[in-house]
């Protein structure tokens, strides 16, 4: 069965206030780093999946992202999916 590697990025929707991001931005100022704008904190989910084909892996991961990893009421998500090449032994 083919294996795929995926990364799902989950971010608060632009309209939703991110107080943790605001606090981190404020800390960046305290560190003396200037010019930081729009600091938003999200989540990264890395996973591997086995599926008969890439389209099926994509279908499953879109469902996963929409129903579990992100809450569409407050969050957006993006998905990056790549075949995982495993070394074949003779």
């Amino acid at each position: 069965m083919p294996r795929f590697q995926a990364q799902v990025l989950v971010n608060l929707r632009p309209s939703v206030l991110d107080p943790a991001g605001e606090a981190a931005k404020s800390a960046a100022n305290s560190l003396g780093i200037e010019g930081i704008q729009n600091l938003r904190i999200g989540k990264v989910v890395n996973l591997e999946i086995e599926a008969p084909e890439e389209a099926e892996a994509l279908r499953r991961l879109e469902l996963l992202s929409d129903r579990l990893l992100a809450n569409p009421v407050i969050e957006d998500w993006t998905l990056d999916l790549n075949p995982l090449h495993t070394t074949k032994t003779a």
Partner: peptide, 17 residues
């Protein structure tokens, strides 16, 4: 209840953390 969809909306991090 909101995650389940029995009630609408979501509860998010308090404004002042």
């Amino acid at each position: 209840l909101t995650e389940l969809g029995l009630l609408p909306g979501a509860l998010t991090r308090n404004k002042d953390l």
